[in-house]
């Protein structure tokens, strides 16, 4: 069953007095119990999608969508209270920058405790409830791999290292036991061991608790081992999405192909740790968007027809937007 369904999500930002489409007809679905990867170069609009889903956008930005639904309920047209209820229990979000997302003047304990839903606390006297809350908080912090919980819990965010803050953000998201976790690059900059720990934890929660995850990442290798399906984003357009396996074996879109080739484990002759550069050239800025297919200027297969925006087509649930896809014959 589809829990989160996004169809033709468009986000318009005013930049120097003109409206630009920072997201252009993005489509994305998340099935129950699915881990979906969302990948793309820096600046492709991954964080903007996360913000649009969670409603954390500046009020002057314009969001339109044919569908933006949570279990069939329209997120855009519902009341604030309804959306708040969904965000409180069903969807949890980890934003990209942990330090900016934490209140600098409140201790970790205060921030974590207030995210625990009332229903988790047994009835009792206020001090008993406070104790129960603290216990839940410490438990979840231990679970995400924060070592000295007692010391860390009474500290302010700026007193802790970045990776503890990152782990803490994960703890805060998981403490409400959500159905869907939206994680925006939660393991960025972590060392391999720690990263592996977190990924294992998330995969385990996916199996045991039926947690669905929308995982935003630059790390194609880590994500391809874990994710069931993938959506590739380029410059605010979703260019291809489908099952992980199918996309690895036979990418239909030239951009996906380039992205796959750039990941070291997929092409052995690449220098390790080189940045994710899929193709020659750079991603265009919002002020200089090409018309038609936004990949046009960088695409080796581009032709005359590409000045028209390609419609979304699909072969067996494998969706793509390209006039001249690859491997189509063999599918």
């Amino acid at each position: 069953m589809i829990i989160l369904d996004i169809k033709n999500l468009t986000l318009e930002i005013e930049s120097n007095g003109v409206l630009v489409k920072a997201l252009d007809k993005v489509s994305l679905t998340i099935q129950e119990n699915e881990i979906r990867a969302l990948v793309g170069e820096s600046g492709s609009g991954k964080s903007l999608i996360v913000r649009a889903i969670s409603g954390a956008l500046p009020p002057q930005w314009i969001v339109t969508a044919d569908r933006l639904t949570w279990r069939g309920q329209n997120l855009l047209s519902m009341t604030r209270a309804q959306r708040q209820a969904i965000m409180r229990r069903d969807i949890a979000v980890i934003f990209q920058d942990p330090l900016a997302s934490l209140d600098p003047s409140a201790t970790l304990k205060d921030q974590l405790v207030e995210s625990i839903p009332q229903e988790f606390i047994p009835k009792g006297w206020p001090w008993q409830r406070r104790k129960a809350r603290l216990r839940i908080a410490q438990q979840i912090m231990r679970k995400v791999g924060i070592k000295d919980v007692h010391a860390a819990i009474n500290k302010y965010p700026h007193e802790l290292s970045l990776d503890i803050c990152q782990k803490f953000m994960i703890a805060m998201a998981l403490v409400s036991q959500p159905t869907l976790l939206i994680a925006d690059d939660p393991t960025r900059g972590m060392e391999t061991n720690t990263k592996q720990q977190i990924l294992t934890l998330l995969a385990q929660l996916n199996k045991t608790r039926n947690l669905s995850i929308l995982f935003v990442s630059h790390d194609l290798i880590a994500i391809s081992a874990m994710a069931h399906s993938m959506t590739v984003l380029y410059c605010g357009q979703s260019v291809e999405s489908g099952k992980m396996k199918a996309m690895r074996r036979r990418p239909l879109h030239p951009y996906t192909k380039a992205l796959m080739d750039s990941a070291p484990s997929f092409s052995p002759d690449l220098i390790p740790k080189s940045p994710l550069v899929a193709m020659d050239g750079t991603i265009p800025t919002l002020q200089h968007l090409p018309i038609g297919c936004r990949l046009g200027p960088r695409c080796p297969r581009a032709a005359k027809e590409c000045v028209q925006v390609p419609e979304e087509r699909s072969i067996n649930e494998h969706k793509y937007r390209c006039h001249y896809p690859m491997h189509v014959e063999s599918v």
Partner: peptide
């Protein structure tokens, strides 16, 4: 950002 983040936690 932290107020936005608090809002998305449904507080």
């Amino acid at each position: 950002e932290y107020i936005k983040s608090a809002q998305t936690r449904g507080l």
